[in-house]
Design a protein around this nucleic acid. Structure first.
Lengths: 112, 112
DNA sequence: TTATTATATAAGTAAATTCTTATATATGGA
DNA sequence: TCCATATATAAGAATTTACTTATATAATAA
């Protein structure tokens, strides 16, 4: 396992220490998501969601791709910090239920 | 493994996301330490150190005991969040070298 | 007892964080 | 082309955080 410096580790932990971002990362570990899905799930303004995603992207924890009008976010398993992220996610409840709820509302965007 | 709620997990991660506290916890996983040792290691004011320790103590991550004039802090392995802490510590460099340095300076307090 | 050492706490300050609102850009459909 | 939808970004406000200095408490040593 690659050893992360203390500075790097605390930076990643700071990103994951926000409830919304931690849940986002948990969701992305299950399924890719677009911004508008996060807006529905977290009942938060679109700019607030975009700003959280930008922080995750700047750290390399997630990647984005365009699909039509949507920007689809994915968890970046290739990132050097992914092992830390994975270990942290092991300690939180499965966020997949939020996607089930989204689907029930008919708000799921199929991300392919 | 006990499943920590999202709120609880983010609270613990917030505590660990501070460089000083993360290093403190890493040190305590090796050896018990007193406040004055932390002051030397982190070259930080005594109140600043005490305030960090208080946050860790309030969350139950560390315990304290008095030994003469010193207050000795220990990592609380019994805490429900300890498994998360342990997994996080697995991703940071060994903080034990800071104790070696302290010993070389003749500043180590034998904690028993 | 008095002084010294170790620690905690309180109050204030500067910086960082997370929202908000307003606005810009890009895509797709009528 | 024009409009609606999805997203990003910028600027500002409220809150939180991590320090500072000043002071209080407890133990030990002279």
């Amino acid at each position: 396992m690659r050893e992360t410096s203390l500075e790097e580790a605390s930076l990643i932990l700071k990103l994951l220490s926000d409830k919304t971002r931690l849940s986002m990362v948990g969701l992305l570990s299950k399924n890719d998501c677009c911004v508008c899905e996060f807006v529905e799930i977290f009942k938060m303004s679109q700019p607030a969601i975009s700003q959280h995603l930008r922080k995750l992207k700047d750290a390399g924890l997630v990647t984005e791709r365009r699909s039509g009008q949507w920007i689809i976010y994915s968890l970046n398993h290739q990132n050097v910090f992914y092992p830390l992220v994975r270990d942290v996610l092991n300690h939180i409840p499965d966020q997949g239920e939020k996607l089930v709820w989204l689907e029930k509302q008919g708000l799921r965007i199929s991300c392919d």
